[in-house]
């Protein structure tokens, strides 16, 4: 496929061309807001990440800090701002890891076919015949909790679905006429993969990336909530929920605020992916998952 961007698009129609819906705009702004906070957090946060600012633990909103204090008297707002960095970065790295595993093996299986495809597909099926949370718990139980183990485990668990998507895409596009034409021209495997197959897989792969990103935020924050993810004193939203659950009975919302933030992040991401997919092929994200 040749490039399509050789025509100059006037600036005003870029947004019109995106066909933004209301939900997509709101979801996009929320994500942008968190992204800016993640980038400039340390300069915005009023206090340090683990700095104890008040003798009063579980201070209500407005006292101590703007959003109150947590179980150790730390500023909830500051920890929230530092936490978005950890949460987003870790989810991003995990998703990249899952794509590195999944896409490489998926395309390799689609192109090499034969025994390689059979062996890898069977192994992936065996992994999928087992609830993913359980698999992650078993691996973390064996290796202990560290950020490396966490990223690799969740990345591995998520890569099974990436593998299936990219293998199916590779198979579908690998038999198309323009790929045949390239082969007939005598192009090498690498050239065909990067110049013919990959550009045509971009839209579904981007959507898959968004979905896996959402899922890894949920997965990682769930693990942190169980005390098996990020460890103190680092600030992570899932961890903040776990730390402050006890405050719920004392009228503190220190556990609810980070939980709501995670929800805002994942719901926005999901809505944005849905918008992207509908724009691409008029198919909703969940119909995609549901298949």
């Amino acid at each position: 496929m040749s490039e399509t961007s050789d025509t100059v698009v006037p600036r005003a129609s870029v947004f019109a061309g995106l066909r933004l819906t209301w939900t997509a705009m709101i979801a996009g702004s929320i994500l942008l807001f968190w992204l800016v906070l993640a980038l400039f957090g340390p300069w915005i946060a009023p206090h340090g990440e683990a700095e104890i600012i008040s003798g009063q633990t579980f201070a209500p909103l407005g006292e101590g800090g703007l959003l109150g204090t947590d179980k150790l008297g730390r500023d909830v707002l500051s920890r929230l701002i530092y936490g978005v960095r950890t949460t987003l970065l870790l989810a991003l790295v995990t998703t990249v890891v899952s794509f590195a595993f999944g896409v490489t093996l998926g395309f390799a299986a689609a192109i090499l076919k034969g025994w390689f495809d059979i062996v890898v597909s069977r192994i992936v099926e065996a992994f999928m015949a087992f609830p993913s949370t359980l698999l992650a718990l078993v691996i973390i139980g064996a290796f202990g909790t560290s950020i490396t183990v966490l990223v690799l485990t969740v990345g591995l668990v998520l890569s099974t679905s990436v593998f299936r998507v990219s293998r199916a895409l590779g198979y579908d596009i690998g038999v198309m006429d323009f790929v045949e034409a390239a082969r007939a021209r005598g192009e090498g495997t690498w050239w065909i993969l990067t110049r013919e197959i990959l550009p045509n897989c971009m839209a579904p792969l981007i959507a898959e990336f968004g979905l896996r990103f959402t899922f890894s935020i949920l997965f990682l924050s769930g693990l942190s909530f169980l005390g098996l993810g990020i460890q103190e004193p680092a600030a992570d939203w899932g961890l903040m929920v776990q730390e402050n659950v006890g405050g719920l009975f004392l009228g503190s919302s220190a556990a609810l605020i980070p939980a709501a933030c995670i929800a805002s992040l994942t719901v926005s991401m999901n809505l944005l992916v849905d918008w992207f997919q509908q724009r691409q092929q008029g198919e909703t994200v969940l119909e995609k998952i549901d298949q």
Partner: peptide, 25 residues
């Protein structure tokens, strides 16, 4: 469709904590 799309992305502990806050606390 919109409600479930949003609900799917909400972490389970958020639902649990909200229910707990409202109905138990």
């Amino acid at each position: 469709a919109m409600t479930t799309l949003a609900l799917i992305a909400v972490p389970e502990f958020f639902i649990g904590l909200i229910l707990m806050k409202v109905f138990a606390v």
